[in-house]
């Protein structure tokens, strides 16, 4: 029982991280219907920046207060970096393709992902790099009992506030209302005076910011980064977004948590190497029975 609960806890923590990345996919998809293949590699670049900043600021030896301040700074810095980069990519790559055939932005996104990977390759080199372990390793819940270290707390402490902020932003601010309007109908949104391009840019920034925050947590939590990490993580996050119902923000969170749970339970039950197959089999089965995802809206085909 304890083992089971422990795996659930690990799964939920990992899942929270997946959810943070999945939000970037689902928000962009919800607003312009693009599978942003470059999102995973954007996060890889965020992790590269985080690694460089940790070295520059000498965070490895800082005390408790220094570490907390450092992590907050890293989240803001990498988040802003990824957000701005995402906006720039939207401006110069995706925006000119708004009226192009549907596959054109998808292929461009693959192209951008290759470019990002190349940048990452020059930034941190071809080999995996270890990310310094800034947080103490002790168990916060006492010695026996479930294991919940400072790292796990960090994930929760960053992810939960960000998600609360995001849902407030989407539900209760003018920008959020504009985002919802654009995702429903771009032309109608334009007619009521919404600057669609700016709303899309804002969406890309928020998605990128969440991705940047995720990259910092990823580095601190997993402790290994490499220029090819974007693909695998992007794949799981994208799967989570689809599982929850792509375009739906709570769906991405639920999907992320489900994927995290499935991964950790599956690797405990049948072994790490089968995890990928199990995750995707479950995904296919769920989609067969609920084609719109767990929380997605059922859309009707229109003439």
């Amino acid at each position: 029982m304890q083992f089971f609960l422990q795996q659930c806890l690990i799964g939920l923590t990992n899942g929270a991280l997946v959810a943070l990345v999945a939000l970037g996919y689902t928000m962009v998809y919800g607003i312009i219907g693009l599978i942003n293949f470059a999102h995973g590699d954007l996060i890889m670049l965020g992790a590269c920046l985080a690694l460089s900043l940790v070295g520059l600021l000498g965070l490895a030896g800082a005390g408790m207060a220094g570490t907390v301040a450092g992590v907050v700074f890293l989240v803001v810095a990498c988040g802003t970096f990824c957000g701005l980069l995402n906006v720039a990519v939207d401006r110069f790559v995706y925006r000119p393709l708004r009226t192009a055939p549907k596959l054109a932005p998808l292929v461009s996104a693959i192209g951008v992902s290759f470019i990002f990977m190349n940048v990452g390759l020059f930034w941190i080199g071809p080999a995996d790099r270890s990310f310094p372990d800034l947080l103490p390793a002790g168990n916060l819940l006492g010695d026996d009992g479930l294991r919940f270290a400072a790292k796990d707390l960090l994930v929760v402490a960053v992810v939960v506030p960000l998600m609360v902020l995001l849902s407030v932003l989407v539900r209760a601010t003018p920008l959020g209302r504009a985002m919802r309007a654009v995702s429903q109908d771009q032309t109608a949104a334009m007619l009521v005076g919404i600057d669609v391009d700016r709303v899309i840019a804002a969406t890309f920034f928020i998605g990128g910011f969440l991705g940047g925050a995720a990259s910092v947590i990823y580095g601190l939590y997993i402790n290994t980064i490499g220029f090819q990490m974007g693909f695998q993580n992007g794949l799981y996050a994208f799967t989570a977004a689809v599982l929850g119902g792509i375009g739906s923000i709570p769906g991405a969170v639920v999907g992320g948590l489900v994927i995290g749970l499935v991964r950790s339970l599956a690797s405990a039950a049948v072994g790490e190497r089968w995890t990928g197959a199990i995750v995707f089999t479950i995904l296919i089965v769920i989609l067969v029975f609920r084609p719109e995802g767990l929380l997605g809206r059922r859309t009707r085909e229109k003439v």
Partner: peptide, 13 residues
């Protein structure tokens, strides 16, 4: 990778 990616982006553009 960068050359290839740029080519994809430009052709689609």
């Amino acid at each position: 990778l960068a050359v290839f990616g740029t080519a994809l982006v430009l052709v689609m553009r």
